[in-house]
Amino acid sequence: MFDRRHLLRASGAAAAGALGAAALPSPADAAGLARPPADPDPTAGVTRTLLQEHPSPAEGWEAVQTLVQIPRHKESGRHSHPGIEVGYIVRGDVLMEFDDRPPLRLRTGDPFFIPDGVIHNARNVGTVTTMMLSTYVVDATKPLVTTY
C-alpha cells in the first residue's frame, strides 16, 4: 500500500542535462526568466511536507494537503497527479511550466489550479525559498506524484 507520508521527489539530473543542451531560447528566456547554469540536481532541497489527508465524499478519492518548499534556483521536477491540485503561493516567485500550455508566473498571494494528469514543473525564479500550499483531490489507489 502506498504511504502518502513518503512523497516522491525525483532527481532532475537527466532533465537538467537535456535542458542545458537546448540551442534556442525558450519563452522564459525572452521574459527574463532564464534558467541558471545547468545544475546536476535541480530538485535538491525541495521538500513536500504532508499536512493532512482525509477520505473524500466521493468513494475512492481522497483529499491531501502538503506544504511544498523550493529553494532559490531549484524546481519541483516534471510530475503529475492522479486528480486536481489547488494551490496557493504562500511566499516566493514561481514559474509554473506545463507540457501542454504556456508557463504561468506566480507570486506571493497567487492561487493556482492544475487539472488532473497535467504534467507540470514549479521552478523558483525568485530570491527566497518558495512556499506553496497544495491541496489535491486524487484517486486513492494511485501514487500522489508520478515523476517524468
Rank of each mutant, 00 (worst) to 15 (best):
A18S: 11
A18D: 12
A18F: 05
A18H: 15
A18T: 06
A18I: 12
L19N: 08
G20N: 15
G20Q: 15
A21C: 05
A21W: 00
A22V: 08
A23Q: 09
A23T: 15
A23S: 13
L24F: 14
L24M: 14
L24C: 11
S26R: 08
P27C: 11
P27W: 05
A28D: 05
A28C: 01
A28V: 02
D29Y: 10
D29I: 03
D29E: 03
A30W: 02
A30S: 08
A30E: 14
A30I: 09
A31C: 07
A31K: 10
A31Y: 02
A31N: 09
G32P: 03
G32W: 09
G32T: 04
L33G: 08
L33Y: 12
A34P: 08
A34L: 07
R35M: 13
P36W: 00
P36F: 00
P36M: 00
P36A: 04
P36S: 14
P36N: 01
P36D: 07
P37E: 05
P37K: 00
P37G: 14
A38F: 03
P40N: 09
P40W: 04
D41H: 13
D41E: 12
D41T: 01
P42F: 01
T43K: 04
T43E: 04
T43Y: 02
T43C: 15
T43F: 06
A44I: 02
A44W: 07
A44R: 15
A44Y: 06
A44V: 06
A44D: 06
G45F: 13
G45V: 10
G45C: 15
V46E: 10
T47H: 07
R48E: 04
R48I: 03
R48Y: 14
T49G: 03
T49D: 06
T49Q: 14
T49M: 05
T49S: 11
L51R: 13
Q52P: 00
Q52A: 14
E53V: 12
E53Y: 09
E53R: 08
E53S: 10
E53K: 13
E53D: 12
H54E: 12
H54A: 08
P55K: 07
P55I: 06
S56Y: 10
S56C: 03
S56I: 04
P57S: 05
P57F: 14
P57I: 12
P57A: 11
A58T: 10
A58R: 07
A58I: 09
A58K: 09
A58Y: 07
A58S: 12
E59D: 14
E59R: 12
E59A: 15
E59P: 06
G60E: 11
G60K: 00
G60S: 07
W61D: 01
E62W: 01
E62S: 05
E62K: 13
A63R: 04
A63I: 09
A63W: 09
A63V: 14
V64Q: 03
Q65L: 09
Q65S: 13
T66S: 06
Q69E: 15
Q69K: 14
Q69H: 02
I70W: 01
I70A: 01
I70L: 10
